[in-house]
């Protein structure tokens, strides 16, 4: 492989990893604090992307930048609604109950999206400034890939700052280990749960907007992303943001390698990888074993 091919594929792998990371980060953040797996995370992602196509339809020129705000907001509102309306009543219950409730929500949101946006595949263009490519050691690199990678870095950095350098972050981390202490110190746990869940949804919505100019937006993208996000989060270890970053990199690289070495095995390879990781470390690379 020559250098330019190597560069093309490395950036391809990195951009794949970046878009996966933004989705998986939200999923794993919610799991870390609330200990629940949110299947409806895929719905938030899809609604973010669909909202982006609508906004761009209204404002063809500046639409994408407006969508970067509107899309996550739509997801945030949905997330807060879901948390307060449904999940709040289920925290004491088993995993299965929460899993099924969010699965039911995924089904409901999928059909509602069909009502609002129809069945046609929708599509938007990247904003003009980043709608091209530039040369790098003989390879053409899509400028929009840089936007995705930058978004992932901003999200990852932001979450790291939030979790390690703010009191809110301290509360989020503490809520899993010792909720009683938090309550005693006057923290409104209910608000905290709603907030974290909303933040997770917001990230899913953001990922939807960011991915929209690159992919076809339409029905079915919710269920697809949720499986991909699970794989990333589970390989990295549920609850660990760093794990999600590592997991998404592993999947990005594995997919690229698979596509090069054995294309018709590539999709099988990913699941095999997840199973191998779970067989060796059943709680993922950076996760903690469940008690």
């Amino acid at each position: 492989m020559d250098l330019s091919a190597f560069v093309t594929q490395s950036i391809g792998a990195l951009s794949t990893a970046s878009s996966l990371f933004i989705v998986a980060a939200g999923l794993t953040l919610v799991f870390g604090a609330l200990r629940l797996i949110n299947i409806a995370h895929g719905s938030f992602y899809m609604y973010g992307a669909l909202a982006a196509t609508t906004v761009v339809g209204w404002f063809p020129d500046s639409g994408f930048w407006i969508a970067l705000i509107v899309g996550p907001l739509v997801a945030l509102v949905m997330g807060v609604g879901v948390e307060m309306g449904v999940l709040r009543r289920l925290y004491g219950r088993e995993h299965l109950t929460q899993l099924l409730a969010t699965f039911a929500l995924l089904l409901i949101f999928a059909d509602l999206a069909l009502r609002f946006w129809g069945k046609n595949v929708r599509s938007i263009n990247p904003p003009k400034v980043v709608n091209g490519n530039f040369g790098l050691v003989g390879a053409r690199v899509p400028a929009y890939d840089m936007v995705i990678i930058a978004a992932a870095i901003v999200v990852g950095g932001g979450l790291w700052l939030l979790l390690t350098h703010t009191t809110l972050g301290w509360k989020i981390r503490a809520v899993v280990d010792d909720p009683e202490v938090l309550v005693c110190s006057g923290v409104n746990i209910r608000m905290l749960y709603t907030g974290v869940f909303g933040l997770g949804a917001l990230l899913a919505g953001l990922a939807g907007v960011v991915i929209a100019p690159q992919q076809a937006v339409g029905p079915g993208m919710d269920a697809q992303i949720i499986v991909a996000a699970f794989i990333v989060a589970v390989i990295g270890g549920l609850g660990s943001i760093t794990g999600a970053a590592i997991g998404s990199l592993i999947i990005g690289i594995a997919e690229t390698l698979g596509a090069n070495l054995a294309p018709s095995w590539a999709s099988t390879f990913i699941y095999l990888l997840m199973i191998v990781v779970l067989a060796v470390r059943p709680w993922g690379l950076l996760g903690t074993p469940e008690r």
Partner: peptide, 17 residues
């Protein structure tokens, strides 16, 4: 790539290369 794959980036970059 898988049918209706969410992300074909890796397959595409292999093709482009």
């Amino acid at each position: 790539p898988p049918l209706a794959a969410t992300n074909i980036g890796s397959y595409l970059s292999a093709l482009v290369a």
